[in-house]
Amino acid sequence: MKTPNAFAQFRILLANGIKSELSDLERLISPLLFALTILILFAFAVGEVEPDMRIKLFVAEVFLTTFLALQISFSRVFEPARTDKVFDLLRTYPVSYNAWFLAKYVLVVMLGLSVALPTIFIGAIMNGKALANVSIWGIIPVTVLAVAGLSALGVLLAAITMKAQSRQILYPLLYFPMTAPVLLSAIQVSVTYLEKGIFNSDSKAWFLLLASFDVIYVTLGVLLFSELVDDSQ
């Protein structure tokens, strides 16, 4: 019996994941609406502040909003597979677990960016005065790296808690402390960049730390996913 190689399986699983997300638009729209609501609430509650403080607030609200909005996406990572025993059936197919993890991971990164990038742009418009002298394009790669790290953790922890009875409690308990290094380094790089207008040596160190955590979490995901999903051994 000829089965597709891992790359072909990755493409099939990713394409199906995208189709599945698009077939239920509520899943895409609700994190975005949530992000917009938070941004508006922030702007309304804080009102006028000094430009320096405005930069810090911008970074805080962008990453806080993205982080919380991503929670909605992550908690639903395996939702389409949870119904009708699709998850179980996938495990009975000759599927490469690396292909499965990476397809889920790329899908979640795409979903994460679809929330994070609009949040940055809308946040930048709302904080226009303070950000007038600096290009916000510099924080795009930082955001991409932050989403990449958070997504790897999100998929991994969603798989851990997929079969756990206490998933509602277990997920935040594991996820929040593990995301701290990613979030802190992303915020540090962004604030330094927006204040100085360039990436200095300090921000480069934080940037490297952020990238390192991405590599660690993606590697962990690839290595652990099969152990978490496969009960047949």
Binding site: M1, K2, T3, P4, A8, Q9, I12, L13, N16, K19, S20, S23, D24, P80, T83, D84, K85, V86, D88, L89, T92, Y93, P94, V95
Partner: peptide, 28 residues
């Protein structure tokens, strides 16, 4: 090929053709 009891292993928000294509492609 396994057919579980009380479930059919189908993506419920997708169409019949999309589901059959997906599972067949996964088998190569």
């Amino acid at each position: 090929e396994y057919l579980p009891a009380e479930a059919n292993g189908m993506y419920t928000k997708m169409s019949a053709v999309e589901n059959l294509k997906f599972w067949s492609n996964l088998r190569g």
